[in-house]
Amino acid sequence: MTESSALVAQEMAEAERPGPEPRGSALRRNARWLLLAAAVVFALWLPFGLYPAVAVEILCWALFAVAIDLLLGYVGLMSFGHAAFWGTSAYATGLVAIHWGLPFPLAVLCGALTATVLAVPIGYLAVKRTGIYFAMVTLAFAQMIYVVANKWSSLTGGENGLQSVPRAITDNFYFYYAALPIVFGGLFLAWRIVHSPFGRVLVAIRDNPSRARALGYAVHRYKLMAFMLSAFLAGLGGGLFAMGHRFVSLETLHWTTSGKAVIIVVLGGIGTLWGGPLGAAAIVRLEDWLSFSGFEQIGLVTGGIFVLTVLLFRRGVWGTLFKRR
């Protein structure tokens, strides 16, 4: 225990040290491409190494976590109600697949767009607050949507959920590869946003909102846009989740779902983008393993990991291992 924490401390110290800039940057660029290639290979291999259903689940949570990270890491807004977008998209995806028979990529897109539209009123009200108040407003809205979904059982199936969502690719192994392009698309979108003129404004707003306003940036509107983009990404994940399970439950809207996404991001590393997929792979795999071994208090373990991450290496796995500040 003491040995590992000493190791972590050493890693943090090393990461903190500013690197030699000019010669290191070409090396780092190459390293980045290598990492990307390794990640793609890993993603292609995943359903061979895991149950394909678990692999699909990792994809969904990776998108959800990146959506959270976009807000938390790059705008400084901690949403504790993103299950609203994940779950709403899951229901919308399921419904259009059931009632209109839309093929799965279109159904997922419909779900994600529904989540984006939902983000307009919620975001409009939430972005006027920061910190804990922002988290509470998003949580409150998510709880309202949970209650509505529970009561409106003619549409959502209430506590029974949406049963038997149709899917042309029934085998999970092949479905994984069908879902992968959507996930890569979503991850690319997140990367593009972060490294865009818009992303630069977001970082400025995160670091100093007053200064950004004095320059003429309409801070609330930028935050709202980021919130909508984040909801779209969470919606992509939620829609895939619905198609992956061929079933949508109320749990997709529950606050514990929001909490799990936050845990994944914190574990993976806030403000890194890579942290989302990494944390998703770790947490989903771990939960699967725990439930397979018949361990019932899964929350105890993930909660414990969360606490340890916050206490020992606050920059998460990715931030601690790779990121220089």
Partner: peptide, 16 residues
């Protein structure tokens, strides 16, 4: 950029 506009372009590279 604030003075001349373009801050909304989340689909473009920040090299812009």
């Amino acid at each position: 950029q604030a003075a001349q506009g373009g801050g909304w372009r989340f689909w473009r590279s920040d090299k812009l």
